[in-house]
């Protein structure tokens, strides 16, 4: 073995050991951290667990035009005092093979405020954490198409993760309109934002 190869081997071994002792799991945020990030002025987050009826599942699947693997969602109402700032929904989708954990913050009017990736577990496709890509969802409502390569651009090399997160957001917005709004939000809240012909809010 040449001196060059020996040096490389030792450096690599050292880096592996350094990595093993200071390893950092691919959890980027906890739920609590994501809540604060989505609604920094909130003074409290009121936790709810919603469980879907079979009618609700049918309605959500129909509206979001996708599969549903969850029997409900964990939801937090973000408040500043008594003022409702919005809702944080926790959800899971598959990336290519593994589960992506993420939250979507929705305003009382039903517009996406933020999408935050909490955990990403695969070697490929982690680009869905890209801020610019996630920012595309801002202000989208349940009336938007939310389709990859239509109103949401794709990231080459992360196509499956992009597709699945996009479908997840579409499902959560349908969940918000069909279940969260009627069940958890009080009367007198702003009416849902209606969509123009392109799916963008009027």
């Amino acid at each position: 073995m040449s001196a060059q190869a020996r040096i490389i081997l030792f450096v690599a071994l050292g880096l592996c050991l350094a990595g093993a002792t200071s390893a950092w799991a691919e959890r980027f945020l906890t739920v609590a951290e994501a809540q604060k990030l989505c609604f920094p002025t909130a003074t409290g987050f009121e936790a709810h667990t919603i469980r879907f009826t079979s009618e609700q599942i049918t309605a959500i699947k129909k509206q979001s035009d996708g599969r549903m693997l969850n029997a409900g969602n964990r939801v937090w109402l973000a408040r500043a005092g008594t003022n409702l700032l919005g809702v944080v929904l926790l959800d899971y989708v598959f990336g290519k093979h593994e589960v992506i954990e993420y939250v979507v913050a929705v305003s009382p009017a039903g517009q996406v405020q933020q999408v935050e990736i909490l955990v990403y577990r695969e070697s490929y496709g982690g680009e869905v954490r890209n801020t610019k890509w996630r920012d595309q969802f801002k202000n989208k409502t349940a009336a938007a198409p939310l389709k990859l390569n239509e109103d949401i651009y794709n990231l080459s090399g992360a196509t499956m993760s992009c597709r699945h997160v996009t479908a997840g957001v579409r499902r959560l917005l349908a969940t918000f309109e069909l279940v969260v709004r009627p069940q958890l939000l009080a009367d007198g809240l702003p009416k849902p934002v209606t969509a123009g012909p392109t799916g963008k809010p009027r």
Binding site: A71, N73, Y92, E98, V99, R121
Partner: peptide, 19 residues
């Protein structure tokens, strides 16, 4: 930082076995 147990239960054990 473990997942939210209530959310885990909503997804079902099988879902997370994909790990």
């Amino acid at each position: 930082a473990p997942r939210d147990p209530a959310a885990d239960e909503l997804m079902g054990r099988k879902f997370f076995n994909s790990q």
